[in-house]
């Protein structure tokens, strides 16, 4: 029973990722693509969580934290690029 529900949830995450990929490719503006990429990262986190429930292991929980950190840094980098047009500055007071 739980197994079936978990696979249904995986299918739902798959469908939402398809929609997000459509938004990444089509997205009219850069901001749409950035938000879609961030949401793809969060969908990946939920996929890892569901898979670790299905496999009954806690070994993948570090992967969740890792994807969270990388998605956060990617979003911060994109936001800085949209705001300032430059990601890494040599001297920010110039």
């Amino acid at each position: 029973m739980l197994e079936t529900l978990l696979f249904i949830a995986l299918g739902g995450v798959f469908l939402s990722m398809l929609g997000l990929f459509y938004r990444v490719i089509k997205g009219p503006s850069v901001a749409d693509r950035v938000i879609a990429l961030d949401s793809i990262g969060i969908s990946l986190i939920s996929v890892v969580g569901l898979v670790s429930i299905i496999l009954r292991t806690s070994d993948y929980l570090e992967v969740i934290l890792l994807i969270g950190i990388l998605a956060f840094i990617g979003t911060v980098a994109f936001s800085k690029f949209i705001e300032k047009g430059e990601i890494i500055e040599r001297d920010r007071n110039q």
């Binding site: 840094i73 911060v76 980098a77 800085k80 990601i87 890494i88 500055e89 040599r90 001297d91 920010r92």
Partner: peptide, 8 residues
Amino acid sequence: LLAFDIQT
């Protein structure tokens, strides 16, 4: 690097 800069 993102929040500050290379000098920092």
